[in-house]
Amino acid sequence: MPANDAAPGRAVLPTGRPALATQPARDLALHESCLVLDDVTVAYGRRVILSHVDADIPRSQVVSIIGANGSGKSTLLKAIAGLVPLAGGAIRCFGEPIDRMRRHVAYVPQREDVDWSFPVSVRDVVMMGRYPLRGWLRRSAPDDERAVARALDELAIADLASKQIGELSGGQQRRAFIARAIAQEPDVILLDEPMAGIDEQTHDRILALFGEWRAAGKVVLQATHTHVHGGSMIVLRRRGEPGSAEHAEHLGAEGGEHHAQHEHHGRAD
């Protein structure tokens, strides 16, 4: 199914919130909300990790979520992925509550969150991306096999398809999970530290993919330490701490981009 048809009832959503000051007016007319974070608050127990985060992200964006360790990057990503409950606010995808749009959202977990000794092959992992598309209980069709083969090719791991996932190097494992995301044909791709601990080849491949995804109208959100040049940013910091000079520099230098800066407090993870 082409990704663009994948969102039933998709609507351009007026969020009722003022656009961020840095956004040029000419973009507003074209602004088609894909992912809207509306006053999102996340807490673990009584500890508030993120408070009152707002962002209205249009299609065709590569958004880097930046901030110091413990600033809540991963938590924000997990909140969008539905892995941590919201204490307040709402997240919408194409105007729908995001819980109803889950199959259009792909999530690439952090390395530490996966049991690499688990007895599955690389092909099995990539095929998992097809389950929500096909229907949870349907058997895989030739279509799915082709999509999986394409995704494996695209990440240059086709020759590793029948290996157990743990036999791959760190970079190859990351590519396997990104291939799974591709196989899912999502509109929103969430990646938790996708560039951490990988080889240069994988790094370049992922960067190129970001560009392709953006060109295809998708939204990419990555929790990261390294901002993608030419992409958008969401900078997080703990309440009361100064933002780093580096981040301020980014914001100043690229004033034409779509930015959001939010204060919050607490510590992630």
Binding site: K78, A81, G82, L83, D99, R102, R103, V105, A106, Y107, V108, P109, D113, V114, D115, F118, V120, D124, V125, M128, G129, Y131, P132, W136, F177, R180, Q184, L190
Partner: peptide, 15 residues
């Protein structure tokens, strides 16, 4: 299998 291997990824997909 999917829920056992990668519960987070599975939940994010809506499983």
């Amino acid at each position: 299998v999917m829920a056992a291997f990668d519960p987070n990824g599975a939940r994010a997909m809506g499983l």
